[in-house]
């Protein structure tokens, strides 16, 4: 039991010395990413003509929308101290489910809004399965979700079959360039999800218990929090948001595609970590992730406008995730620390 107090040598050491680095670290986590975003934006504005325009700003927000939806789910999971690698698989499975249930050129289904709801439900089921295997069979979350990532891709491959299914439902097709109250539809969804995640994290029992579990699972258990139940709920939410992201991306493409989520895992996980949400859990939150997503989208957009090879963007994201993880964990390094 890790709840058992051990009169450990390390305890006293932490008590006396940890407070100052902790404050520095918090400052680094909260202000650092925001400063980086501003610096990045200013640099591109100065160096790249065409970056600091209203149109480009709108493009950036639109590009950030789907990653934001995905990253909010990811944030909740990471706040628990777990991780969800199944984003791309769930997106693909949900995207194809949606296309094949809505009006399309492959079958006679025309469920309309119900297709939308069912597709997101499929994502939620993926999340519940992730959560249940993780908590009941006690398998580390990265391993479970690595498996379901490919299960989702496999399901999408099976659903895809041999010919590309095209979305023919006019209501949904209209979302692709459409606006609600003058705001592009994807941005509406992204805004709703972001605000929702923020409210949940700040004010709800679910959100606060998520922070508690991520802060110290053993202590939370001793305090009587049903840790497993909350974990499953959070994974379920993350799955549903991945599903929503998959559906929105599919609507944008207009066709069902197995690789609809390609590259999104990176983008979301990098954004979460970069925003200052610690992989060890309990610290950070939706606003951090918002900044993280914007940094990455601005970086990608700026690089593209400066004429860089599009793959450089992927390489940069790979580097960013490594640097961000190491930088945020640097203050707690120790000669004898063991991390697997």
């Amino acid at each position: 039991m890790s709840a058992t107090p051990v009169h450990d040598v390390a305890t006293l050491e932490q008590q006396s010395t940890v407070s100052r680095p902790k404050n520095n670290r918090r400052l680094l986590l909260s202000a650092g990413p925001a400063v980086a975003l501003v610096v990045l934006a200013v640099a591109f504005a100065v160096l790249t003509p065409g970056f600091a325009t209203v149109n480009n700003a709108r493009a950036i927000v639109e590009q950030a929308s789907i990653p934001l939806v995905l990253a909010m789910g990811s944030t909740l999971v990471v706040l628990l101290g777990s991780v969800d690698l199944s984003v791309e698989g769930v997106m693909a499975a949900c995207g194809l489910t949606f296309v094949l249930l809505a009006s399309n050129n492959r079958n006679d289904n025309d469920l309309g809004w119900l297709a939308f709801v069912i597709a997101i439900g499929v994502g939620a089921v993926f999340g519940v399965v992730n959560g249940l295997i993780h908590t009941r069979i006690r398998v580390p979350s990265f391993m479970v979700t690595l498996g379901t990532w490919f299960i989702g891709l496999g399901m999408a491959t099976v659903l895809f079959g041999t010919t590309t299914p095209q979305l023919q439902d006019q209501t949904f097709r209209a979302w692709a360039g459409g606006r609600w109250l003058g705001v592009p539809v994807v941005i509406v969804f992204a805004a709703l999800v972001t605000v929702g995640a923020f409210v949940v994290c700040r004010y709800s029992k679910l959100g606060r218990y998520t922070y508690a579990i991520g802060g110290d699972e053993a202590v939370s258990r001793v305090a009587g929090i049903p840790v497993n139940r909350f974990k499953v709920i959070v994974f379920c939410l993350a799955g549903a948001l991945s599903g929503l992201g998959g559906v929105l991306a599919t609507i944008r493409l207009g066709v069902g595609d197995v690789s609809v989520g390609s590259g999104q895992l990176f983008l979301t996980l990098s954004a979460v970590v970069l925003g200052g949400t610690l992989l060890s859990g309990g610290r950070g939150g939706p606003l951090h992730t918002l900044v993280g997503v914007l940094i990455l989208v601005v970086l990608g957009n700026g690089l593209l406008l400066s004429g860089a090879n599009p793959y450089v963007q992927q390489a940069a994201q790979g580097l960013v995730i490594v640097i961000a993880v190491i930088a945020t964990g640097w203050p707690v390094r120790d000669r004898l620390r063991v991390v697997k």
């Binding site: 709840a3 107090p5 051990v6 009169h7 450990d8 305890t11 008590q15 902790k22 606060r208 922070y211 508690a212 991520g214 802060g215 110290d216 202590v219 939370s220 001793v222 309990g282 610290r283």
Partner: peptide
């Protein structure tokens, strides 16, 4: 109240 404290440092005191 153990010597090794069991509060969650990332939450508010009231929580």
């Amino acid at each position: 109240v153990h010597q090794e404290q069991s509060l969650l440092p990332n939450l508010r005191v009231a929580e």
